[in-house]
Amino acid sequence: MIEINNLNKKFGKLTVLENLDLKIKDGGVFAILGPNGSGKTTLIKCLLGMVIPNMGEISFDSKSILNNWEYRNNLNYLPQIANFPNNLTVSELIKMVKNLRPKDSDEAPLIKRFNLEPFLNKKLVSLSGGTKQKVNILLTFMFDSDLLILDEPTTGLDPISLISLKDLLREEQQKGKTILITTHIMSFVEEMADEIIFLLDGNIYFKGTNEELKKQTGIDNLEKSIAELISKQYV
């Protein structure tokens, strides 16, 4: 379980997260939504220890994560932009990441699922954006961890890979994993998410299921309900 209390983060004068409280229970797909600059990525990065909060407490499995790094062995992160050392080949990169984590991995089925065999001995610099994203997904899903954090996982994927990704997510969901996703693609949210966490101005504006959101806004369409939530910010 993830518990965030009174989280504050400022970048210079810009306040990104303000007194944010959030509890995420174990198991399920949680979509973190919000307009650009609402603090989604910052929130995720605080959780990962990449951004150091000014104030507040974050705990994962009831242990504080601040100034700690061991907890990251139990989470997998898919970054928004995948950029790897250019001169390594795909299989070397896989070997390297495996080497860095004291944990068993299972990459063979994923290589097959995303058709990555022809690229295994190619240098990363020569891969297209979409293929890099597939490698990125592979690196994220090859470890068995309780928490998965995906930042814009659909970027650059072709329709077939997108379907593979969705299948993969469903399997992980059924295994009882906790999956946090940020995305701007509402159909993806509608299809995959158990719960929506909507950020606005650095705080949680809405947390609940699809249906609850639709009920609250009175609009029977997720995309439009989200738009309705966002538009309130400009009133």
């Binding site: 990449m50 790094w69 907890y71 990251r72 970054p79 790897f84 984590r101």
Partner: peptide, 14 residues
């Protein structure tokens, strides 16, 4: 830089 970010998400001390 991006690769460093990937490493930062691994269980390794900064």
């Amino acid at each position: 830089k991006e690769f460093t970010e990937l490493l930062l998400a691994q269980p390794i001390k900064r």
